[in-house]
Every structure is written in structure tokens, then in C-alpha cells.
Design a protein around this nucleic acid. Sequence first.
DNA 1: GCCATATTGTGAGTATACTGTCAATTAATT
DNA 2: AATTAATTGACAGTATACTCACAATATGGC
Lengths: 170, 170
Amino acid sequence: MPNSKPTPVTMDAVYTAPGYLFRRMQQIAVALFIEECKAFDLTPVQYAALVTISTHPGIDATRLSAVIAFDRSTLGNVIERLQAKEFVVRKPAPEDKRVKLLYLTKAGASVLNDIMPSVDKAQARMLQPLKPADRKTLLALLTQLVDLNNEASRVPLRAEDALEHLGRSG
Amino acid sequence: MPNSKPTPVTMDAVYTAPGYLFRRMQQIAVALFIEECKAFDLTPVQYAALVTISTHPGIDATRLSAVIAFDRSTLGNVIERLQAKEFVVRKPAPEDKRVKLLYLTKAGASVLNDIMPSVDKAQARMLQPLKPADRKTLLALLTQLVDLNNEASRVPLRAEDALEHLGRSG
DNA sequence: GCCATATTGTGAGTATACTGTCAATTAATT
DNA sequence: AATTAATTGACAGTATACTCACAATATGGC
């Protein structure tokens, strides 16, 4: 009877799991972002969307989701909220009636410009407890790991370059 | 006019932010967990709850949330789902009419025992792309960082030891 | 030109994750 | 003992994050 002896379970089955640690760090990262940026009423996801629309004016929702690796359905609601705040406008694409193109408003460009220092502060704070050398090491390994695991996520990141050739003419 | 020159925004404002990288790794971690454990119909959060109830039979929802650092409100729904699957039962505490104590059912203990190898496989897979030495380095730094940032999260982890003294008599 | 296929945005449904608030209950203070 | 504090579980509300499905539209093979 090889299966009659159950393994004794300890909290290590949670605390030492990398997945649990990544979840905790994500919670901490969001909390620090919200705290530093509360004057701007923007979430981390909304910030990423604004940056991307700023660097890719006229991008559509599907491409936006690929560039920041966020779920397409989720992004619909995110854009709605950015529209409600009047940071973003959607214009129908003339050559494809399905597509709605995204642009920043003046207010959107302004809030993006203004929020940057607070975002940087939040990003610095979350690594602050580590020694400078360790910060660099962690960031390098994390960047590597995200890149190497890209295909494992449900919404793999498709870099901007890859998208430029995916227009309705390619 | 010192503020008239806006900083040019690039996608680095997203891609190199540790908060973005932690979000991506969390997405990847969940995707790998779900993929490896799909036969058991358990989410990462539900798994953590089961482990904790297994090692702390008779724990209540508030203490459970502190031990795994999950939001108390969120945990209510998680427990409901575990109850619906008949992996967990809630019994009213005799000495405090507000409290409902949590216990694993036979089915809950069984699924927890059975799912372990799949959980381990998922956890191994998410670090797999790194060299073994780098895995150790990353895990050590990540553990350190989560611990040192504990108070920054909205729901700081309160270790089991700290909770033993927080009973209604302490 | 027609038909199968793919894409785009959208909506429903589930699950985390947080903010509040609230009633019931218990504990602490006076 | 009576008032005040704190705690517990519950609920409403917002925001991400994913699934699947669906209509409108566009594209490719034929």
C-alpha cells in the first residue's frame, strides 16, 4: 500500500513557493503604486495603457493588449474607465469598420507627464529594502525570467516590432 | 518656464518597471498552476487556503487571511467556493458566536494530498528557464524582498506564531 | 464572386483583490 | 453594570484577469 502514507503538510508548501512570493510582491507593488499615485487616480494597468497609447497613437485595443500583455477582454473595461476620465478617445478606423483607434487627450498626455515622478518613486520604493547590488541582480533575473516564460502566460507579450507587420495589409 | 518641456515617453516606462515585471510573473505563475493542476479544479488561492486549514484545523477566516496575507473580504468568497466543492466545512465556535471555525473534509484532505506533485511541478516550471544557481539567487532575493516589504502591503502577513497569542484571551 | 476562416470588439460568467460599511457580538474602560 | 472599543463575518462597490461565445466585418482560397 504505497499511497497510504500522506505527506505531512507544512506552511512551507505555501511560503516557499515562488508563485506565492510573486503574488505577494504583486500585491505590494500595487499597494505602493496606489499610495504614491493617489493624487492622480490612476491604477498601474491604466498607467501602462496610457504610456502605450502615448508611444503608439492610433493603436487599437487588440494590439494594445499584445504590447503590454494584458487580456483583451479586461482591456475593454480599462479603456472605458480611461474614456470616462477623458484621458483617452476612440475614433473608428476609416479602412476597417471593426477597429476603434486610441488616442490620448490633452488631459491624458498631461496626467501621464505629471504622474511619472510618482510612478518612479513607487518603483524605487519596492526595491529599496535590498542592497543596491541585489536590486540590480533581482531586476536582471526577473527580466530574464519574464522573457523566457513569455509563452507560458495566457497573453504573451508581442513586442511592438512584431506588431508593425501585422496591419491589415500584412 | 521650466515645465514646458515634457519628458519623451518610451515603453521602457512600462517594461523596466519592477511592478510590471512582478505583474507579468504573477500572471505566468497562475497560468502554470492552472495548467498543471487542471485535473483538480483548484486555484492557487484555494490551494493556499486548503494548506493553511490543514495545518491549522479550526482556524477562523480572519486568522486565515492573516496567515496567508490575503484580503479578508476576498477570502469569504474563496471559502464559499471551497465549501461548495465540499473540501471545507465551517462550524460555529462555541465560545464566540461571531466566529466560524474552518476544517478540511475527507475530500479536502484527499485533494490536498493528491495535488501536491502537480503544484510542485508548476512551481519548478516557472523557475526552470533560469540556471540552477540563478534560481536560488532569485528565490532568496524574492523571499527577502517580500519579507522586508511586508508592512507595505495592504494585508501584511502575520505569522502563525504571532496569531497564537491573539486569541480572545490575549 | 463565394465561402470558409480569421479578426475585432463586446458581453456573460468566474475568481481574485481591494475599499468601504454594517450588525452582531465581545472585550476593555470606567 | 454601562458605555465605549474592537472584532467578526457579511455585503456593496470598484478593478483586474481570465474563459467562452457571438455578431459584424475582413481576408484568403477557390
